[in-house]
């Protein structure tokens, strides 16, 4: 049996997993307008975190900075330890992203599009077919895999967009306003899909709808005018609606 030498740091009794996302003091200016103002937060592995705020509160800008699409004016963000600015390719390899308007190539067939995205996401050529089959099964796209994307309903397009985000097994899946434009049945199905994703990935989801965040996320980050007002663990007592109103009203009448 050996003992640590005198003066050596004691081994921790347990260790917390490293956060998948670490955002520290993120700032983004668009010309003279400050869209994001010193926002800091973490997302832990397996966690579903909701970014909640009214339109124009900076949710999409924060996501775009995390995906490397926009460079922060100030601050640091890392994905699984990779800086989104200085180690951008590695950070992007660890993120699956579904933008708000579900942009896809309409003339491609579903399986062609997914195979294309799999190759872009670094899936080795022999594994592409298997990776596509896997996400087709997970998102229940089997009935439409041979169809051109332009012929799909909004709900299926949303699923295809999520499927491409899961290719390459990213650590983090980012969904920007995923329920936009979906009918009630599709919204209910999507909640199930998000819960399924959370079994294997950390999820960061945005919405301006309180009920959506309450139903899909474990923790809500409340934003207003680009500032993070606070966070709230869903189901920890007070309804999210009351917390949201209290936080945003504290910023001044009619702030939200």
């Amino acid at each position: 049996m050996s003992f640590p030498e005198a003066g050596a740091p004691a081994a921790p009794a347990f260790s917390l997993p490293a956060p998948v996302v670490q955002a520290r003091g993120l700032v983004k200016w668009y010309g003279r307008r400050k869209a994001v103002d010193r926002v800091s937060f973490d997302v832990m592995p397996g966690e579903v975190v909701g970014l909640l705020g009214p339109n124009g509160s900076g949710k999409s800008t924060i996501l775009r900075m995390l995906t490397g699409y926009l460079a922060p004016t100030d601050g640091i963000a890392t994905i699984d330890g990779c800086d989104v600015l200085t180690d951008s390719l590695e950070a992007r390899r660890r993120v699956g992203y579904v933008p708000e308007d579900v942009p896809l190539y309409p003339q491609m067939r579903v399986h062609e599009f997914l195979a294309f995205m799999a190759r872009l996401r670094g899936v080795a050529a022999p594994g592409v077919a298997q990776a596509v089959d896997d996400v087709v099964d997970r998102l229940r796209l089997g009935s439409v895999r041979a169809l051109t994307i332009s012929k799909l309903s909004r709900g299926f397009r949303q699923r295809v967009a999520i499927a491409q985000a899961l290719l390459g097994e990213p650590k983090l899946v980012i969904l920007d306003e995923p329920t936009n434009g979906l009918d009630p049945r599709q919204i209910i199905e999507l909640r199930g899909v998000i819960r399924g994703i959370a079994e294997r990935h950390a999820v960061l989801v945005t919405s301006h709808i309180l009920a959506e965040i309450e139903r899909t996320a474990q923790r809500a980050l409340i934003l207003l005018d680009g500032r993070l007002l606070g966070q709230y663990v869903i189901g920890s007592g007070e309804p999210l609606e009351d917390v949201f109103l209290r936080m945003t009203e504290a910023e001044g009448p009619g702030a939200a």
Binding site: G68, Y69, R92, P99, D101, P103, L120, R121
Partner: peptide, 14 residues
């Protein structure tokens, strides 16, 4: 215009 540039440039592609 179609937003697919965002999809392309957020993939690990230089």
């Amino acid at each position: 215009r179609g937003g697919t540039l965002e999809l392309l440039l957020t993939a690990p592609v230089p």
